[in-house]
Nucleic acid binder design. Sequence first.
DNA 1: CCAGAGTTGGCACTGAATGCCAACATCGGC
DNA 2: GCCGATGTTGGCATTCAGTGCCAACTCTGG
Lengths: 224, 224
Amino acid sequence: MALNANIGIVHYHCGVMVDSQPGLRERARRAIQKEITEAAQQLFVDRGYEATTIDDIAEAAGLSRRSVFRYFSSKEDIIVGKFAFIGETIVAILRDRPLDEAVWRSLRLGLDVLVPYVDDPDKQDMAESMQRIVFASPALLASYLEKLERIQIACDHVLRDRAAARGAPVAPADPRPRAVVGAAFSCLLAAQHSWLADSGRQAFAACLDAAMTALAPVEPQPDS
Amino acid sequence: MALNANIGIVHYHCGVMVDSQPGLRERARRAIQKEITEAAQQLFVDRGYEATTIDDIAEAAGLSRRSVFRYFSSKEDIIVGKFAFIGETIVAILRDRPLDEAVWRSLRLGLDVLVPYVDDPDKQDMAESMQRIVFASPALLASYLEKLERIQIACDHVLRDRAAARGAPVAPADPRPRAVVGAAFSCLLAAQHSWLADSGRQAFAACLDAAMTALAPVEPQPDS
DNA sequence: CCAGAGTTGGCACTGAATGCCAACATCGGC
DNA sequence: GCCGATGTTGGCATTCAGTGCCAACTCTGG
């Protein structure tokens, strides 16, 4: 069990549960999740996504099939689960932007949290492989797009809250905030395709900028 | 077997296989597909999507589980399969628009093929139910978004071909056509959300227009 | 009436996902 | 250091989606 050796049972004297915010238990959980993810990614790269079973992943990660499902709610979640967290980050950034900033710029800054996942030279190879796998597998792609959709819905809410805070509330049936958010996320998808199209030779951030400058809300704010 | 009675075995004298373009066999196939779809939709509305099994659908449609999979490649496909056809229609429309037309307008006209599916007063109730079910079920939503993604990729190709035909080819790694197409489809999603938000009281086409006028490519054509 | 082509339904199997439970480890107090 | 409470694990059984296979049936054409 390389796992148990690795969790890092630091067990301080017993006392006051000395651990930084996440809690010791939570840190162990994340460490195992990370191991599963890495084992799975390797298998997906080697054999492909559909050709890899959960049993394969469980064996490679050194735990039982049943336990894999305790760490990830589904096979897709192993790859795409992190987007729940990324989504929360984007939403938080969006919420904290100054109220008078142009929406399009706020969205660009929100999407910036994705850049380090891709443009980091260390992870670039793996990032490219995984993106290719996601776009190649219908099930993974579907799951990925669904996650993005959920993030977009959350961003839409934030934009409406911000419009209201600005004193210019938007009707619930007004499609414009949702359309603007969707357009920004389409730029993300477009940037991913571009980035893959020439194998990460140009920076992902540059692709994103190229896409987002080609498009813009007709009005700086979705009211007027 | 209400089915067999209904397929409409018109079996003309034997002679020349008198049938309009699709071929008799193909028409029978479509009729059965339609029956399965309708039976399934009813069940989904009654019990919800995940609570309905393929066996339920097979029984309601009067055929075997195995045969259902001969007509639809998956459970989601029963609802979302028609988008393969719709996508082809959109692509065809896009391809046939005049080369000097503004891209945004061409896309708006392409998306117009969806309007009759929704704004038809006869089908409106069912259309609303089904859209709610799609957005409520993660699996269906994921599948729907994946279908839209495939259509967008096809539209992206058309736009690039048209740019080339116009004498202003776009680099394969240029994200702009993809971004513009994605923005248009985001308007579609936004319009669906709006339309559902006040229960189809306003026309779907109006929602689509509201979304698409709030957004536009920075340049009329994605070159220059 | 018969031969061939296509359709059907049943059967067996894989793989994902979930519920359940007994075995085990860990952490608290004593 | 012992012991009960709590949480984690692995195994088992089950459901459901999806696929391959094959024998039985149906319809068409000769």
